[in-house]
Design a protein around this nucleic acid. Structure first.
Lengths: 165, 165
DNA sequence: CTTGGAATGTCAACAAGGCTGACGTATTCT
DNA sequence: AGAATACGTCAGCCTTGTTGACATTCCAAG
């Protein structure tokens, strides 16, 4: 109820506009995952493997616990995926040096190849969309998405974003 | 390779920018589904039920086949969900008048109540995000999402969008 | 009128990927 | 010494996707 704008600019907050935003999000997300999904299926993996590989690549040497909190799944669920990746030689799990209870996760060369293949496909689509929409639209896109996150997820996102890695 | 812009404006197409867009999409989608998911869980339903209820509400009297093509799942998968909704009195299935093989789907009053509850929750979040980002950002958001869809999904999206219903 | 095909429903079986609960084993902290 | 932490694992359950097979009902073409 606070900061009610001047009238005309509120058109983007009508139920109809919001519903269009919702449906756009739904259909776009399907496009967003379509290309990696095709690649993953060939290799007998799923989205869960993609997410693991993606975030291990983002944070080399991350611990299992950290990955759990980023992905928001149970350790049993992650473990199943992680075990497959380790068995297939895509991920390496090293005992921590300071704290030997921890396992630090790394992509092997094969893992990096898969990550590259997946992210290339996803980036290609994102690039095409960004190019089609233009820089100003991209800024707005990011702003809205960030505002849509839960606060704890936004923290995770920002922590990853503000890395030099 | 065509229409290469002047240089500075290409910054939004760096791999780093694209990766941030990818991660923003991932985290935002989790936020996007979080509120309805909580409501659905209380009632013993899942996202599949939400999608069915949403699109039946959008297109009163749609056929099963049409719903299948929008949702992109197999009829067996949809049927399980649909049967639960029908058994629980949320959806009504009427035999077609012209073509009696077809079933036309409608929300009952109870179904409309659930749909309302779910979409209210989802709209609240979308509204907050739109409000925080502002009208210009919302335009960009929509542009990028539309450019990210597969062409056939974009057709579905546009068909729904351009309805007066 | 018969027959082929389309639309729908249903049964069975299976897989991925979530979940809970319980337990074991290091390791570290108090 | 005992509690807490990090991780792995076994077992079982659920949702939601998949294929395949088969029945029914109806429309339309021959």
């Amino acid at each position: 109820m606070n900061d009610v704008p001047s009238g005309q600019s509120l058109l983007f907050l009508t139920d109809e506009q919001l519903r269009q935003g919702i449906e756009a999000m739904y259909f776009a997300y399907r496009g967003f995952t379509a290309d990696p999904d095709r690649i993953l299926e060939e290799k007998g993996y799923g989205r869960a493997h993609h997410r693991a590989v993606h975030f291990i690549n983002r944070s080399h040497g991350t611990t299992v616990n950290n990955l759990l909190s980023i992905l928001g799944v149970t350790k049993q669920s992650l473990n199943r995926v992680l075990r497959a990746l380790i068995d297939d030689g895509l991920v390496e799990s090293r005992v921590g040096q300071e704290d030997k209870r921890e396992r630090h996760l790394f992509l092997t060369e094969a893992g990096q190849r898969l990550e590259r293949e997946l992210s290339d496909a996803q980036r290609d689509r994102m690039r095409a969309a960004f190019r089609a929409a233009g820089p100003a639209a991209v800024g707005g896109f990011r702003q809205v998405l960030e505002a849509m996150m839960d606060t704890d997820m936004r923290r995770q996102y920002e922590a990853l974003r503000d890395r030099t890695t």
